[in-house]
């Protein structure tokens, strides 16, 4: 870790004009980066510098900047969300880097996440998987049952809650050597499969979500476990196993 208050760094960043054009890694020098700044603030600083030089700023995704929305992505120095665990890129601080470091910044790489511009990728494949079954159909005719009226065992509620912590960031896909989305889909399937409200549509849900996942062109899990380690929300591999169980049950029905 850097002990200086500011550091000078070299950046190698993927630049790509649009979805059609071929991109390449470009090198930038950025001086006087506060070690207290977040990684995204450092990119803001770079963009200011680029704008002053009348160059095109680097496009990157971000929104909440507090680790809850899942928008920020970035493959930093060979790791999703950079060299720290349990965090998103907006939660990564420049104190994790040293003066003189060369930092690689790349977009998520997956056939299902095509690059839109620079570091921004299209993650709507996740939306389509969610739309295929990641919901519970609720009757809104006025006879809705109060959620608390349905008893849920505490352990199930806890596990469902842990699965529901997934923010759909796509780090699991980005880090997986197979570009597999099974941690994401496993979390979404589990979140509902564990709750009585979700059981009603459990069979259809897992079949539809997995079918959509396959259609989007994600790869197949080989249980390397990389996703679990890089997931900012600590989603466990148990969720993939649960999805596999649910899928087997549903297929045999």
């Amino acid at each position: 870790m850097a002990s200086k208050k500011t550091i000078n760094i070299n950046l190698k960043i993927w630049r790509q004009k649009n979805a059609k054009e071929k991109g390449s890694m470009e090198t930038y020098k950025l001086d006087n980066v506060s070690t207290d700044s977040s990684f995204l603030e450092m990119l803001d600083q770079l963009n200011e510098q680029l704008v002053n030089e009348r160059k095109e700023p680097v496009a990157f995704d971000h929104d909440c900047r507090e680790g809850i929305c899942g928008m920020c992505s970035l493959y930093i120095n060979g790791r999703a969300h950079g060299p720290d665990t349990g965090i998103t890129t907006c939660q990564l601080h420049m104190r994790m880097f040293n003066d003189g470091d060369t930092i690689y910044v790349e977009p998520w790489r997956s056939k299902a996440f095509p690059v839109i511009k620079d570091l921004v990728v299209d993650r709507s494949a996740f939306d389509r998987i969610q739309q295929a079954g990641g919901f519970v159909s609720v009757n809104t005719s006025g006879r809705t049952i109060d959620a608390n009226a349905t008893p849920v065992p505490k352990t199930d509620a806890d596990k469902a809650f842990e699965a529901a912590a997934c923010i759909g960031c796509g780090a699991c896909v980005a880090t997986c050597k197979n570009g597999s989305a099974m941690l994401f889909v496993g979390a979404k399937v589990s979140q509902y499969a564990l709750l009585p409200q979700g059981r009603v549509e459990a069979t259809e849900r897992v079949l539809n979500m997995v079918r959509q996942m396959d259609e989007e062109g994600f790869g197949n899990c080989t249980n390397t476990g990389a996703c679990e380690i890089e997931c900012p929300k600590g989603i466990s591999l148990e969720n993939i196993a649960r999805m596999n169980r649910e899928y087997l049950k549903a297929s045999l029905k």
Partner: peptide, 30 residues
């Protein structure tokens, strides 16, 4: 077949990657 599909799922690779940080040698080379 699975391996071919998995390769297709990432047509453009990373310029820098550090797979040893999060997975074992055997699991990556089945």
């Amino acid at each position: 077949l699975l391996t071919i599909q998995n390769k297709k799922a990432r047509p453009i690779g990373y310029a820098k990657s550090n797979p040893a940080a999060n997975s074992g040698f055997a699991s990556r080379n089945m």
